[in-house]
Amino acid sequence: MRVYLPCTIPALARMAAAGELGPAPLTGYAVTPALVEWYVSGDTEELEYVALTEAARASLRMLAADRSDGLDVVSRRVVVAAEVGDDTVSAGVGLEERARVRLYAPVPLSAVASVHVDDLSAVPDVDAAVGALPAADKGDDDAKFTVDGAEAHELMWYATQEIPDLLR
């Protein structure tokens, strides 16, 4: 099963050093039966894009959490795409969890298919979105618009052998 795991640049560096993304349990996003049912007209590629987008939103929240912990992190969303065994994954069931999955084992670097990262040109919009998250969560429409602005940027695709270059 292809799973999209939200990440940050510091977490990507830890993954590269450790040879795995963990520890488990991990939250990811995938094409689940609930997502297929919700998005009836979509083909597999469209459904995978929805899962990738959900992971990118979660990456935005990880950036906000790192900042609230006092870490100085670059405002770039990161998503790790990996192939994992179905036996290590359980899918969410609720409307809000239609693409969310839980992984019960760390993801080895050898299972990583690609990494998706914001281009440097997205940094100002991602930074604004991170700052707007608290107000957006309280229903502020202008803040929601700012958060949605980060999604206007497509994540760039990188092969696993390019991870060291991303971390420089």
Rank of each mutant, 00 (worst) to 15 (best):
M1Q: 04
V3Y: 01
Y4I: 05
L5A: 03
L5W: 01
P10G: 03
L12W: 01
L12I: 00
L12M: 08
A13V: 00
A16F: 02
A16V: 00
A16R: 04
G19C: 14
G19P: 08
E20C: 05
A24P: 02
P25D: 05
T27W: 09
T27F: 09
G28T: 03
Y29L: 04
A30M: 12
T32W: 10
P33W: 12
P33G: 11
A34D: 09
L35I: 10
E37M: 09
E37T: 13
Y39R: 15
V40E: 13
V40T: 15
V40D: 14
S41H: 13
S41Q: 05
G42W: 02
D43A: 12
D43L: 13
T44F: 00
E46Q: 11
L47A: 07
L47M: 05
L47E: 04
Y49Q: 13
V50N: 08
V50L: 00
A51F: 12
L52M: 14
R57H: 14
L60Y: 07
L63I: 09
A65F: 13
D66C: 11
G70I: 09
G70H: 06
G70A: 10
L71T: 02
L71V: 08
V74S: 07
V74A: 13
V74M: 03
S75T: 05
R76L: 15
R77G: 03
V79C: 11
V80I: 13
A82F: 02
A82W: 01
E83S: 14
V84P: 07
T88R: 14
V89A: 09
V89L: 15
S90A: 15
S90L: 13
A91K: 07
L95Y: 12
E97R: 10
E97G: 09
R98M: 15
R100F: 11
L103Q: 04
L103P: 11
Y104H: 14
A105E: 15
P106F: 11
V107S: 09
L109D: 01
A111N: 12
A111F: 10
V112T: 01
A113M: 07
S114L: 00
H116R: 06
V117W: 05
V117P: 03
D119A: 15
S121K: 09
S121T: 05
A122K: 04
V123L: 00
P124N: 04
P124Q: 06
P124R: 10
D125H: 10
V126H: 02
V126P: 04
A128R: 13
A129D: 06
A132F: 03
A132Q: 08
A132L: 00
A135D: 15
A135R: 15
A135T: 08
D137H: 14
G139E: 03
G139W: 02
A143S: 08
A143C: 10
K144N: 05
K144A: 12
F145Y: 09
T146G: 06
V147G: 02
D148A: 14
D148R: 15
G149K: 01
A150H: 05
A152H: 14
A152K: 08
H153Q: 04
H153G: 06
L155M: 07
L155F: 06
L155W: 00
M156T: 10
W157E: 00
W157K: 05
Y158G: 03
Y158S: 05
A159P: 01
E162W: 02
E162C: 03
I163N: 04
I163V: 15
D165G: 09
D165Y: 00
